[in-house]
Deep mutational scan, measured.
Amino acid sequence: TETVELHKLKLAELKQECLARGLETKGIKQDLIHRLQAYLEEHAE
């Protein structure tokens, strides 16, 4: 999932992505995007 794609997701979809990775789901859309980006960078293959 790339940065551009995360911005296209709806808030509910971002929350699902966070939940699937065991991440916090509180906060505004930008918080969730930032959290997912950090996770994806950390776990990049």
Score class of each variant (00 low, 15 high):
1 T>N: 10
2 E>H: 09
3 T>Y: 05
3 T>K: 15
3 T>R: 11
4 V>R: 12
4 V>F: 14
4 V>A: 11
4 V>E: 13
4 V>W: 15
4 V>C: 14
5 E>V: 07
5 E>M: 11
5 E>G: 09
5 E>H: 09
6 L>Q: 01
6 L>V: 07
6 L>I: 04
7 H>D: 08
8 K>A: 10
8 K>C: 06
9 L>A: 05
10 K>H: 12
10 K>T: 15
10 K>G: 13
10 K>D: 15
10 K>W: 00
10 K>M: 06
10 K>P: 14
10 K>F: 01
11 L>R: 05
11 L>D: 08
11 L>E: 10
12 A>Y: 06
12 A>V: 10
13 E>T: 08
13 E>H: 03
13 E>G: 03
13 E>M: 05
13 E>C: 05
14 L>G: 00
14 L>P: 00
14 L>R: 00
15 K>R: 12
15 K>A: 05
16 Q>G: 06
16 Q>K: 15
17 E>W: 08
17 E>L: 05
17 E>P: 01
17 E>D: 02
17 E>F: 11
17 E>Y: 06
17 E>M: 13
18 C>W: 00
19 L>C: 06
19 L>R: 09
19 L>Y: 07
19 L>K: 12
19 L>N: 08
19 L>E: 14
19 L>Q: 14
20 A>T: 10
20 A>E: 10
20 A>N: 13
21 R>W: 02
22 G>S: 05
22 G>A: 03
22 G>E: 03
23 L>I: 08
23 L>H: 01
24 E>G: 07
25 T>P: 10
25 T>N: 04
25 T>L: 04
26 K>C: 13
26 K>E: 14
26 K>N: 13
26 K>Q: 12
27 G>A: 01
27 G>E: 01
27 G>L: 00
27 G>T: 01
28 I>W: 07
28 I>F: 07
28 I>D: 15
28 I>A: 15
29 K>P: 05
30 Q>Y: 08
30 Q>A: 13
30 Q>H: 04
31 D>G: 01
31 D>K: 02
31 D>P: 02
32 L>W: 00
32 L>E: 02
33 I>F: 06
34 H>D: 11
35 R>C: 02
35 R>K: 05
35 R>N: 04
36 L>W: 01
36 L>F: 02
36 L>N: 03
37 Q>H: 09
37 Q>E: 13
37 Q>W: 05
38 A>L: 10
38 A>M: 08
39 Y>S: 09
39 Y>N: 07
40 L>P: 12
40 L>K: 04
40 L>I: 15
41 E>S: 10
41 E>Y: 14
42 E>G: 11
42 E>D: 11
42 E>C: 12
42 E>N: 11
43 H>K: 13
44 A>S: 14
44 A>C: 15
44 A>Y: 08
44 A>R: 12
45 E>W: 06
45 E>M: 08
45 E>V: 09
